[in-house]
């Protein structure tokens, strides 16, 4: 009888010991971080190209418009279908195809300034949304490759069309020297030099 009691006591002791160890090693629930405002959550998912193709002035304004319900989730061409899927999952909506009126999805390309053609007008520097172009007035400009988002906003303002969008891995090809046309002065047309 006492033998049975002893066995029961040993088992009880073991159960308590193992239970205590189990409790000790069980992972404690981590405190969840405070939830960000919806616009910020949406902004975190957007590709941050800042290309303005969605019709807003940048990724943040577009995120705010989506949060307010003013914009649809399929207006971001750089994000493509993958980006739309992420937005749809975040907002609990059905994904939809990209609205191609805002542009087509294409792989990321980088801006390249043909440095032999650049005249140093600074227009592209003013257009770049992420300050990825370096240069100053009447001096050559160049793109900082690691910072370029491929938004293409610098291409249109260039007065000498020396910016092209290139595949990041493609070898760099210099297009041509800046064309200089000799101007012939007719005799007698410049009285001050005559």
């Amino acid at each position: 009888m006492s033998g049975l009691l002893l066995i029961a006591l040993i088992l009880l002791g073991l159960a308590l010991l193992l239970g205590a160890r189990q409790l000790k090693t069980r992972p404690r629930p981590q405190p969840t971080p405070p939830e960000l405002p919806l616009a910020e959550q949406i902004d975190a998912v957007l590709p941050q190209t800042q290309c303005t193709q969605c019709g807003y002035k940048g990724c943040r304004p577009y995120a705010e418009a989506i949060a307010k319900g003013e914009a649809d989730i399929n207006q971001c061409p750089p994000g493509g279908d993958e980006g739309i899927a992420k937005l749809a999952a975040l907002l609990g909506r059905d994904p939809k195809p990209l609205d191609t009126s805002h542009g087509e999805h294409k792989p990321k390309r980088l801006a390249l300034i043909d440095e032999s053609v650049c005249i140093g007008c600074t227009l592209c520097i003013q257009a770049c949304p992420v300050d990825a172009i370096l240069g100053s007035a009447k001096h050559m400009h160049t793109v900082i490759r690691s910072e370029c988002t491929g938004c293409e906003l610098c291409v249109a303002p260039c007065p000498v069309d020396c910016i092209s969008m290139v595949d990041p891995d493609a070898p760099v090809k210099i297009r041509r020297r800046y064309p200089v046309f000799p101007i012939k002065i007719q005799a007698g047309s410049r009285p001050d030099r005559a």
């Binding site: 190209t49 990724c59 992420v130």
Partner: peptide, 15 residues
């Protein structure tokens, strides 16, 4: 890609 996007956001905000 996420790191690049975060950097672009930072630079845009600073601009």
């Amino acid at each position: 890609a996420q790191q690049a996007a975060d950097k672009a956001r930072q630079r845009h905000e600073f601009r």
